[in-house]
Every structure is written in C-alpha cells, then in structure tokens.
Simulated assay, not measured.
Amino acid sequence: MNYQVARSSAAYFTDEKVRHATLAAMMTSEALDRQTRNDDNGMQQVLSSLGVTSGNGDELVARGAAMGTRVTTYTDQVATVEVWMAGLVGVTDTNAPMPVSASWTTYTLTLQWQSGDWKLASINSVNGPTPLDAGSDDPTSVDEFRTADREFNAPPYAG
C-alpha cells in the first residue's frame, strides 16, 4: 500500500531524483531498470497532458489514498497484493488543460522477498472500481484546490 502512495506524490511526478530514489528503495534489482523507464516515460506523458511546465510545476496536485488491500497469493518468497486506490491529479493553474480530477484504480503488486525485505517485482493496474458520483456539489474551484493542497499535509508513507 505504501508503495503506491509514494508513487502518487507530486514530487514523484515532477522530480526525477525523487522518483529514482523511491523506485530504488522499493523495486527488486531485476525490475528496477524496467520500472524506472516505464515511470519516467509515463510521468513525461502525464505532465505533458496536464500542461505542467517548469513554470507551473508547483501547481500540480497529485495524491493517492488506499481504499483497501487484499492478498491474493502468498509464499515466503513471493506475494501478490491488490491495492484499490483513489487518486487526485491535476493542475491548479486556470490555463491548464486539465483541472484537478479524481480517479479510481486497482493496482496488482507482485512482491518478492529480497535482501531481507519485500520488494516490488511488478506493478499492473486496471481502472476502478469507481463509485457513483452523487453529483450534489459543483466541482471545487482551482483556487480552493490550490489552498487545500498547500494547507493539508499529504498522508505519510513509510519510505
């Protein structure tokens, strides 16, 4: 669960050094290079689609929260865990192409016991389950999201 929360932070999206250090701490030695390439490419695509530039990178809101977990397989050496997550991502810049939006994703994490710790061997994801939007509120303004992102601490993760 903490692995996916760590991969959901704004710094993970925008700071290659943070991303690489995070991956080095959590991935198996065999999976590290592949996941680093995948996430570097993925983050470039996401940032581009969100309209994040060097001038507005501090306006990025990126957070994830685990809604639940389940272990689907387990041995002393390998485990598979599913993590159902809610996420927020977007830019609090009124000129950005995508405002802060919510997503629901289930990640399947294959963990391997390596060097005295559980490390990620692979990460896969599918959309959902996604709850019904009650539609009772209008979306929050860009300014309100900017304020909330700065005033509320992100959930901690072990790392």
Rank of each mutant, 00 (worst) to 15 (best):
D117T: 05
W118E: 11
M43E: 08
R63D: 07
A96V: 11
A21C: 02
A121S: 14
A10E: 02
V126L: 09
S48E: 14
T22Y: 01
S125A: 12
G128L: 08
S49N: 10
P131N: 13
S54Y: 00
T72F: 13
D33W: 08
G159E: 05
T80D: 11
R19F: 00
S136I: 14
K119H: 10
N124S: 15
A65L: 11
T94E: 14
S115I: 04
A25E: 15
Y3C: 10
M1L: 13
N124K: 11
V126S: 11
S136Y: 14
G116M: 06
A11I: 03
R146C: 03
E16R: 11
T69M: 09
L111H: 00
T53H: 01
N2G: 15
A65D: 10
I123P: 00
T75C: 05
A65C: 06
M98K: 12
W84K: 04
Y107P: 05
A65M: 10
D76G: 15
G87N: 05
G55N: 10
S103C: 09
R19V: 00
A121Y: 07
D39M: 02
G116W: 05
P97D: 09
N124Y: 07
Q44M: 05
M67S: 10
W104Y: 15
D40C: 00
N124A: 15
H20G: 10
V81C: 13
T80N: 08
